[in-house]
């Protein structure tokens, strides 16, 4: 590391400052849009904050696992394998979204604070958040329809 300290780190590509949404705001995307929305925006945020590749891969893996689990639970409820009322499917989808958000939140929390500590601003989430909520809802509905 000592040697690395005095060798350039920013010379290979055009480096810009870190960026971030207010990561608390991703909760809304997770709650209304579900796993897909929070994954897309969360990964984008992680890249902006220059999280290590391994951590980003870990986040993607968490999202995939949660999505598979959620799909399985929804399938199990709709086919009667699980003894839960169909009306609760919506809540369960939301719960998976929020769970996914919690993973992202704790992974991004420290880098986000560091970003603020060096004078970083937060990007506006309204437009992108709304867009990905809509896209997520459409995909989820299509999937549920397909399973039904």
């Amino acid at each position: 590391m000592q040697g690395d300290l005095y060798s350039p780190s920013l010379q290979d590509h055009a480096v810009t400052k870190t960026k971030s949404y207010n990561i608390s705001g991703l909760f809304l995307v997770a709650f209304f849009g579900g796993i897909i929305g929070v994954t897309v925006l969360g990964i984008r945020n992680a890249q902006w904050l220059r999280l290590e590749k391994k951590l980003i891969q870990l986040l993607v893996a968490i999202s995939v696992i949660l999505f598979i689990c959620k799909t399985f639970v929804v399938y199990a409820i709709s086919t009667g394998m699980l003894n839960i009322a169909d009306s609760n499917v919506d809540n369960i989808v939301k719960a998976f979204g929020v769970l996914c958000f919690i993973f992202y939140y704790f992974m991004l929390k420290k880098p986000f604070k560091e970003h603020l500590a060096v004078g970083g601003n937060t990007e506006v989430l309204y437009k992108q958040g709304l867009l990905w909520v809509l896209i997520s809802v459409v995909i989820e509905v299509i999937l549920i329809q397909m399973m039904a």
Binding site: D4, S9, T16, K17, R50, P111
Partner: peptide
């Protein structure tokens, strides 16, 4: 480095 996201360095 912190501004550029190179936290370790």
């Amino acid at each position: 480095m912190a501004k550029a996201g190179q936290r370790k360095k």
